[in-house]
Structures are given as structure tokens and as C-alpha cells.
Amino acid sequence: MKVIEVNNLVKQYNGAKSPSVDGVSFSVDNGEFFAFLGPNGAGKTTTISILTTTLSTTSGEARIAGFDVDKDARRVRERIGIISQKPSLDKSLTAEENIRFHAALYGLYGYRPSFKLMPKAYKEQVTQLAEIVGIQDALFRPVKKLSGGMQRKLEIIRSLVHTPDVLFLDEPTQGLDAVSRRMLWDYINDVRNRYGTTIFLTTHYIDEAENVDKVCIINHGKIAFCATPDAMKRQIAYDPAPRVCLPSLEDAYVEFLNRDKGAA
């Protein structure tokens, strides 16, 4: 079953001369791990903003779990979670207050004025999540006093508190150290295995997309390529000498973009 369907999506920002997303179509199956790759300014964040109902479309349509992102925004919102490229934390609240606020907006727990007063299940859940990503010591500190990577980890656990069906990750590992990156991916894989969560990933660390089910490359607002990572590597056999093994996805990706530039 298709959980994300995008049809001829166009987005031209107000006052912009040309569309940032220009007739994009693709689909993602339920439970799939999907990578949406492309250079800076290609239109990845724009597409994600439309899919997560925070940006209007110029034309075309997009559906999540069969619901139109424009007409049925609430149903879409009930099913999604996002780690956006630009942090969306309240910096004056503590880390835990940010999570508590999130949990209240999703109706999981009513907001109570202090952590101590929250139900036991909530307290356990938050403590456990913080331990998984290693920010348990920072939980009660104001967000503005946390490092960039710690803030990122906070956003990661916050986005998963309400178990979304589809999780959008817009460069989730930017600013994370190598150990944390690995830990994050272990955690996300764990979530996928347990809940069958569909993952929509954009990243500039192409190696993170090595094991995805499907890759789409967007360039200048248009879909340039959609395939499995293996198919992509095979197709972009840029090395004329016979190779024993396939190139890395990053090699294939860079080669592809170079050719795309040559063609344009």
C-alpha cells in the first residue's frame, strides 16, 4: 500500500521567479525506508513542508495514507512526525518541558505544571527515551543551554513520543558526532522494526542512505532518478573498467549529479 503519493507537485514561493519544486511525482510504500537526496536548494525541505501540511502547494497533489495534505490536513497530521532541518524547540523551556508540551498537543497526557506531577507512565517513558539518546542529564536544563547536538537528540525523541506512522527526517544527523549518529540510526532501525514506521529521509551523508529501500534524487526541483540503491549503482557504472563490486551509493550519487549538470 502506498503511504505517500505525490503527483505533479509544484511549489513556487511567493515572489519567486521560478518554482522550487517543479512537477514532482513519486510514491513511498507503507513501512518503506525512503531516501530523498539532492544538492542544496534542490527542493527537499520544500517538499517535506508540503507533505507535513505546513506549506501550501501551487499545484498538483500530495497524499499521506490516502488523505490529501491540503483538504484533510488534520488526518495527515495525526499520522506524521517530523524532525525538521531548522530546530523547532522552545529554547526558554527545559528539554523535558518541550517533550511534555508535545505529548499534551498529541493528547497523550494532559499538561501538568511540573514533571513530578506527571503520570508515572510519562515519567518512565521520558526517562527511558532520554537514556536511549544519552541526554538524561540534560533533561531538566533549559534548551538554550544545551549543545546543538543535544538539541537535535531532544528533537529526535520528541518526534517519536506519539509513534507516528510516517516519520520525516530532514537532515536528522546534522551536527551529531559519529557515535551519536550511529546510535541514532540504531534507534531508528529499532523503531522501524517494532512499529513498521515509514521513514522519509533527506541527508547529505549519503552513506546513511546505503541501506534504504528506495532512493529518489531531486535536482533543481525535478525528480532526476528513482530506484533502489543497488539499481542506482548499477545504472551509474561510471567506471569503464569491470568492477568486482559496486561503487558506494555516494560515488554513484556524485557521478549522477555531475552527469546531470553536464546534460543541463
Binding site: G107, L108, A121, L129, I132
Partner: peptide
């Protein structure tokens, strides 16, 4: 279900509760 600290939508919060919960939060 509730595993690895993530809450599932076993009991789906009602819409009215969520709106009031939001205002209050």
C-alpha cells in the same frame, strides 16, 4: 503497544480532549 518508551495509539485520545489539552499546554 508501549515498547522502548514509545507510547502507542492503543487508546486514541478524543478530539475534544486534545483541543483542551492543547489550550491548557
Amino acid at each position: 503497544t508501549t515498547v522502548i518508551g514509545t507510547v502507542g495509539d492503543v487508546k486514541k485520545p478524543s478530539r475534544v480532549f486534545r483541543e483542551i489539552s492543547t489550550i491548557w499546554a
